[in-house]
Structure formats: C-alpha cells, structure tokens
C-alpha cells in the first residue's frame, strides 16, 4: 500500500484502531497485506528459533562441564518452545502448521541468516548467547508492543526467557577471558567471527529495506533496522571493553556529538549472499531439519496410534 493510495472505509477504520493502540485479534478485520506481512514475519521468526537450535546442538555433547551441558540443553529446549509459541501465532492467521513447516523444509521460507554460520569452538556458544541473543532481544522487545495480539503475547514469553540466553553466553565469554591466554584468544576469535553477522541480523539499512515503512505504520515494527542496530552497538561496546576484547572494526569510535558509537561499513554483499543460500552452512542446516522431520515421523505415527487405541478403549 502506497501512501496516499485509496483506502477502503474498513482499512481506514483499521488504521485508526492501530493508531489508537488497540490490539488486533485473530477474528478482527485486517487488510490482506497486514495478514500476509505477519505470516511472513512470524513464520520466519519461528523458523529462526527452530533452525537456531542446530548451531548450538553441535556443542551439547561437547560442553566442557556438566553444568554447561545442562544450561545448553535448557537453552536449546527454550528455542524449541519459542518456535512453538510462534508457530501457534502464525496459525491464528489462517495458515496450517503443516504448510508453514513444509515451506521451511522445501527451502521456500527464510530464517535468520546468522544461523548459517558454523560454530567452530566452544567460545562460539558464548558469542552466540552474548551477541546473537543480545541482538535478538533488542529486535524483539519492541515487538512485545506490536499491534497483533497473539504475536505480542508470544513475544512477552520469549523475551523473558531470552535474557537467560544472553547472560549465560556472556558468562561463558567472561570465564574464557579470565582463563589462560589461549582461552582468551578463543573468545576473541569468536567475537571476530560473530560481530559482523550480528550487526547484519538487524536487517538491511533503512534505505534498502523493502517492508519497513508499511510495517511501521501498521505497528508490526516500532523501530527501524538502523535504530536497532545502533542500539545493539551502543550496548555491546562497553561489554566488550569489560571483557578486555577488541571489536573487529577499525572505524568504531565514540561520537560525542551524536551520543552514539560510529561504526564501519557492513558488507551487505555477504548478507545477501548468505540469504540467497550461499552461506557456509545453509545446505547443512536444511538437511539437518529435513532429517529430523523424517526421522521423527515414527514418533508422530506412534502418538497418533496411541491416541486412537485409548479412544477405542474409552468407547468400549
């Protein structure tokens, strides 16, 4: 919808509700574009939670202590839960769960491009929690106030749990930075590899972003990608200083006039290339998802058979 385009009386009324801060619920009238935008955004978000389990799953069996292993398991389990809250929210918009999952497995749906990077060392578990979940929180907290009720409510639960994810990551980094020089170097290496992808996580710059303006009008988005990215940089630089780590950006410096950190140019070619499917792990991630879905098929059949048996017994 273009600004100034003719809106129907229903659409005008809808926009007035949004402007008044009234939440939209599943049975309420909504323009087709609003519904489609939400389906795309929430399902991408759900897929990101589910695919996001994979890079960390890699380290569950290799966690350095039992405590870290229990924490990693709890985090990955949370991510499965977050995926489910969000898949349920998508369903309220009139698409079936099966269709949403099929779109992911067929490679038609997108998920956050950051999960297409490999987790090479244990420090990556720290960097993911600290930077990736840290970025996610910054993106997600405003969505708790978005105009669509089921999405906003799911996001409240997710944000509460996500804080644990970020803190456990920072704690891993802190432990490594207080350890041997080799451990600290490992933490620095992880920061070097995850820093730029974490900045890209906030999406294309405002000038390039195709969906931004309408989403902001509909209050699906409350801040622009660049604002959120700046917030992430401002929040993270002092944390890196505390750890004694160096952010891999020679152009990074405090700008007293703006009251923000200036930072270097993002390599958007890399970003679009990963989105197109050419990141280091795109194929591996999708293969792992498909395998998990297929190998889990007997569990679904068994659950259905069990339910049927019990229903028959009850009827008898």
């Amino acid at each position: 919808m273009v600004e100034g385009a003719q809106l129907s009386p229903e659409e005008i009324q809808f926009q007035e509700r949004i402007d008044a801060g009234i939440k939209i619920e599943p049975k309420d009238y909504m323009p087709e574009g609003y519904r489609k935008t939400l389906i795309r955004q929430i399902s991408q978000h759900a897929h990101s939670e589910i695919v996001g389990q994979l890079p960390e799953g890699n380290w569950i069996t290799r966690a350095p202590t039992l405590k870290r292993k229990a924490i990693a398991l709890a985090k990955v389990q949370d991510e499965a839960g977050h995926g489910l809250y969000l898949y349920s929210a998508v369903e309220t918009l009139g698409v079936t769960r099966e269709q949403t999952i099929e779109d992911l497995l067929a490679g038609k749906a997108k998920y956050s491009s950051i999960f297409n990077y490999p987790t090479l060392t244990w420090a990556d578990m720290g960097a993911i929690g600290w930077l990736v979940d840290g970025s996610a929180i910054i993106n997600q907290i405003p969505i708790c106030r978005c105009s669509y009720g089921p999405y906003a409510r799911a996001m409240v639960r997710i944000c509460k749990e996500e804080t644990f994810h970020m803190r456990q990551g920072f704690e891993i980094m802190m432990t490594l930075c207080r350890g041997t020089p080799a451990q600290k170097a490992m933490a620095q290496d992880a920061l070097n590899r995850w820093w730029w992808p974490s900045l890209m996580m906030h999406g294309p710059s405002d000038a390039e972003s195709t969906h931004s303006a309408q989403s902001i009008r509909w209050k699906i988005k409350l801040f622009s990608n660049d604002e959120l990215r700046q917030k992430f940089v401002d929040q993270t630089v002092p944390q890196a200083e505390y750890l004694g780590l160096k952010i891999p950006d020679p152009d990074l410096k405090w700008n007293a006039e703006r009251g923000h950190y200036d930072f270097g140019k993002i390599d958007w070619d890399e970003f679009y290339n990963v989105i197109k499917g050419n990141g280091p792990c795109n194929r591996e991630r999708l293969r792992a998802r498909i395998a998990a879905h297929e190998e889990g098929s007997w569990v679904r059949s068994a659950a259905a058979a069990h339910a049927e048996k019990r229903a028959k017994r009850k009827a008898a």
Partner: peptide, 24 residues
Amino acid sequence: HVGSLHAPDAEMAVKNARDVYTRR
C-alpha cells in the same frame, strides 16, 4: 489462557503443555 498446541489427544496435550508452557 497461555497459548495453544497440537496433540493427538487430551493426555498428550497436557504432557506437551507441561514442556512448552511450564519450564520455569
């Protein structure tokens, strides 16, 4: 009300709800 989920019967819905909605 906290949300929704799919399950083949009520008993499994309770079990899934335990995992999805009461981890803390």
